[in-house]
Structures are given as C-alpha cells and as structure tokens.
Write a protein that binds this DNA or RNA. Structure first.
Length: 320
DNA sequence: AAACAGCTCAACCGCAGACGG
DNA sequence: CCCGTCTGCGGTTGAGCTGTT
C-alpha cells in the first residue's frame, strides 16, 4: 500500500503564496503559535497543506530570519561545516542563526559550489580537483570573478524583494497594535540605537544593503489612517506579487524602500520593529495572549515606549 | 524592443525518523 | 514490536527575473 499523501491533494492550492495567504498564516501563528501543522491550514482558513504552511513559515515568514546574501564569514562557515557534515543542511543551518537550510542549500548550489570549483576545489570532497582551474589564464579567472560580482549585484535586487515579507509581518503586528489601543508610536532615535542588537557588521553590506530582523524599519502610521497607498516596491516575488501594503494602512508615509540603501531617510519616521532576541521563539508571545483579544499586541521593540521592557513585563502588559 | 539564455530561489516532492497508541 | 501519523530533511523543479544579443 502506498503511503498516505501528506494532505488531501484535491482542492489545495499550490505554487507561490499570495499576500493574503501570508497574512492569514502570520496572523494565525501570532495568535496560536506553532503547533500541529496539519491543522494550521484548516484553522487559518488556508487552502494549503500543513507542510506547505510550515515551509512557508520556516523559510520565509519567520521574523527572526536574516535576509540577503550570506556574508563572507557565513560563507566560510558554511564551507567549513559542509566539509565536516556534508549535505546536512539543517545541521549547517543550525550554526547560522537566522538562516534556513533551504537558503543555505540554495546558496551553496548557486554560489559557493561555483566559487570552490573556480578555486580548483571539489565542492563534494573539499579536495583539489584533478584538473585545476587555477591553471587557467588569469584573465579568464578575472572574467569569472567579474561575472560573480555581477550576479551579486543583481541578487541585491532579489534581496530587495524580500523586504516586502518583513513588511508584511510588520504590518500584521502593527495592525494588532493599533486595534488594541488605537495609538500610534513615534520614532525615537536614541531608542532605536538601543534596540539594535544584531551584529550588522557581519553582513556582506557591500553586496546587499540590508537586512536583519533588527534592521527592519517601520514607518509609524498616524492613528487615524483609513485610506491606503503604498510604495511601488511591494512586489514580493515569493508571495506571488503582493499588494499587501495596498490593503493596509500607513497612507501618509513614504515607504521609500523602493531604492534600497536609503531607507533611513531622515524625513520619514521609522522605528525598528523587533530585534533578534525577542523572536528566537514566538511562544512567549502567544502564550501570553488573552484568547479573547485574538490578535497579539505590539512587540516591545515595535513600541517606542516599550523597547526597554523585558519579555515578561511586555507580555504582562499585553494581557492587561 | 524583442528574443533568448542563464541564473536565482521559493516551493514542491518523497523519504526517513520520531513518536504515541 | 507494529502501525499510523506527523514533522523534518535533502533533492529537485520551474516561474520569474536579469543580462545579453
């Protein structure tokens, strides 16, 4: 007898996730936490299988994910770990906080493998190749390198796309915040400094002008927002062409993510949404949510007034 | 401007291991 | 120990994007 499929295949949606689906999933997990993936789609009102939901969450929506290309250090670490562990991507990923096995696997296949081959190293055995490419004329090697650098720069555009996902998570939380107390927050530069936890330097900033969870900037919406507008940069490839922002608030703000690298334009008010430490685990968030409120309140790092609070005090506030 | 080729990476598939009854 | 269920993992695919001609 064949194994039962992981889910009823009939009637289930496949392919890229839409912003609406992302929103549902995020909202559900914020409210109920991660448990029983098989039940998630039903409860969240998604026409997906649980597996797909889990994958979408772990590989793309989780707020503690780093985004953007792997830094030099991370790349080196991946190579070292691969030499020790082989294709055990999840094990390798466990050594790189904020990175998923899928991401590392993709990066390995598209970048590192080529680099190693170019260096005359067999990416499988980590030993010198028989026919050593280092015998190639220098000019040829330079060509290769240029091409790689090119691909880096183009991938920064791809990295840019990923921001919309973080935006999306932001939006859900901020919506919750506004629903809860009807207040908006204001940016506080000194506070933003204190919120920064992540080691941004570890990023390959020459390649990608982003992005760590702690580096997510959120514009503070006016409290009486009803109309909608958005930056033109809400494309979200993985989400399958999101106009999520258009459905959301923040009308009077310039979400100037369109041109990356200048997201810290001084005229707009931004706050950091959250930092790594707070989202190692969602459970603290969810466990303390009053079921009747359904939506969780703001994360401390999301609230200008709360950034200095520890988790417990923040959750205590939540349930009030 | 259009056609084509190459590349990237989100998402899928199937298998294996863990776990509980 | 067996069986069924669920989750996690690694390999693979293909849509969409970018660069080149």
């Amino acid at each position: 007898m064949g194994r039962q499929p992981c889910c009823e295949k009939v009637g289930l949606k496949k392919g890229p996730w839409t912003a609406e689906e992302d929103k549902k999933l995020i909202t559900f997990i914020l409210t109920h936490g991660q448990c029983c993936w098989r039940a998630v789609p039903k409860l969240a009102g998604l026409l997906r299988c649980g597996k797909s939901c889990r994958l979408r969450w772990t590989n793309y929506l989780r707020p503690d994910l780093k985004r953007g290309l792997l830094s030099e250090q991370e790349e080196k670490l991946v190579v070292d770990l691969h030499a020790q562990l082989g294709n055990r991507w999840s094990k390798i990923a466990s050594h790189l906080p904020g990175r998923t096995d899928n991401e590392i696997k993709n990066h390995w296949n598209t970048h590192i493998k080529k680099k190693l081959k170019k260096m005359g190293i067999d990416p499988v055995t980590h030993k010198p190749l028989v026919s050593n490419p280092s015998d190639q004329p220098q000019s040829l090697q330079n060509n290769h390198q240029q091409k790689d650098e090119q691909s880096c720069s183009t991938s920064s555009a791809n990295a840019a796309k990923t921001r919309s996902v973080n935006d999306l998570v932001d939006s859900v939380v901020i919506n919750a915040k506004e629903e809860e107390d009807g207040t908006s927050c204001t940016a506080n530069a000194s506070m933003l400094d204190t919120i920064q936890v992540m080691d941004i330097d570890s990023f390959c900033t020459d390649e990608v002008p982003l992005i760590g969870p702690s580096d997510i900037l959120v514009a503070c919406p006016p409290s009486s927002s009803t109309s909608s507008s958005s930056s033109s940069h809400n494309n979200s490839c993985g989400g399958g062409g999101s106009n999520f922002f258009q459905e959301l608030q923040f009308p009077d703000l310039d979400w100037s993510y369109g041109d990356f690298g200048d997201h810290n334009d001084g005229d707009n008010q931004h706050i950091k949404l959250w930092d790594d430490d707070h989202f190692i685990n969602w459970d603290f968030l969810v466990d303390n949510v009053d079921d009747k409120t359904q939506m969780v309140g703001p994360h401390p790092a999301n609230s200008c007034q709360r950034s200095a609070l520890d988790q417990s005090s923040w959750t205590n506030e939540l349930v009030k």
